[in-house]
Amino acid sequence: MRSSHIWHWRYAALASCALFLASLVAISFGPIHLPFFGAMKTLLGLPGGLHGQERTVLLDLRLPRILLAALVGAALSSSGAVYQSVFRNPLADPYLLGAASGAGLGATIALTLHPNTALTPLFAFIGGVVAVLASFFISGKFFAEPATLLLSGIAIGSFFTAIQTYVLQRHSASLRPVYSWILGELTVSNWEILRWSSFYIIIAIATLIVISKKLDGLMLSDEEAHSLGINPSRLRVIAIAAATLATATAVAAAGLIGFVGIVVPHLVRGLTRRVTNRSILTIAISGAAFLILADFGARTILSPAEVPIGIITAFIGAPFFLIVLRNRRVGG
C-alpha cells in the first residue's frame, strides 16, 4: 500500500533545504566576500551586523539579486512544467507561445529608444503578453485543439523575431544592450523590479499550485478528462494564462534565461520519479535554487567580470539534463 502523499511534502522539504543552502552560499560569496555571520546578523536584524559598504552590497545589491533569481527560477520552471502538461509535450518550454520573442521585440524597441531605459521591463512584459494573446487569437480552435495553439505560437514567435531583427538592423547601436538582455541579466536587479515582479509571479505560481492537482487530467484526452470531472478547455486557459503571466514577468525582470523551464521540471521528475503535477511546488522551489546557483556561477566564475546567466544555465543544465535523461526511469 502506498503511503498517501508523504513523498510530495518530503521532496518539497528537500528542495527547500537546497534552496536555503543555495541562498546561504550566494549571500556570502561573490566578487566582494561578505563575512557569513555578519551577513546573517544583518539579515536577521541582530546586533553585530555589517556596516558601510558591506551592508550596502548585501542589502541593495546581493539580496535583491538573489531574491529575483529565486523568483525568476521558480516562475520559469513551474511555467515550463505546466506547459509540458498542457501541451502533452515534454519539450514544451515557457517561451513556446511567443512570450520570448514578444518580450524580445518589446525590449528591443525600448532599448532602441533609449539604451539605458528603465522602461525595458515594461516593454518586454507588454511584448510577451501581446505575443501570447496573438497566438490565442489566431489559433481560434485552441479550445478544441492545443496543437493549433502551439503552431500559431511558433508562427507568432517567428513573426515577432523577424520584426525584432529588422528593428535591430536599422538601429545597430542598440545591438549590444539588446544582445546582453537576450542572454539574461540579473545585474540590473533592485528592490523596485523585485517589488512588481514578485507581485505577479507569486500570484501566478500560487494559481499554478492551486490547479496543479487537476493538471494531471490534461495529460489524458479531453473526453477522459471530462469524464473525471474536469472542464479541460477552462483549465487549459487558466493554466496558460497563469504560466504566461509568470513567464512574461520573469522575462521582463531578467531577460531571456533559457533552459530553466525544460531542465528543472525534468530534473525534478527524473530524481523524484514522479510525473504527477503535484510536484509543481517542488519544481518551483528547485527552480529557485537552480537559478540562484546559476547566478552565483555567473557572478563568480570570471569575477569580477560577469558571465551572462543564460550561458551558465545552459552549461549547468545541459549535462545534468543528459545524465538524468540517460538514467531516468521516468518517461518512455
Binding site: 502533452r88 495529460m219 477522459e224 469524464s227 510525473v275 518517461g331 518512455g332
Partner: peptide, 14 residues
C-alpha cells in the same frame, strides 16, 4: 460517467 476511448492519450512516465 466513465469514458474509455478507442485510442487513449498515454501520460508519459505514469
Amino acid at each position: 460517467v466513465a469514458y474509455v476511448p478507442q485510442i487513449p492519450t498515454i501520460p508519459q512516465g505514469m
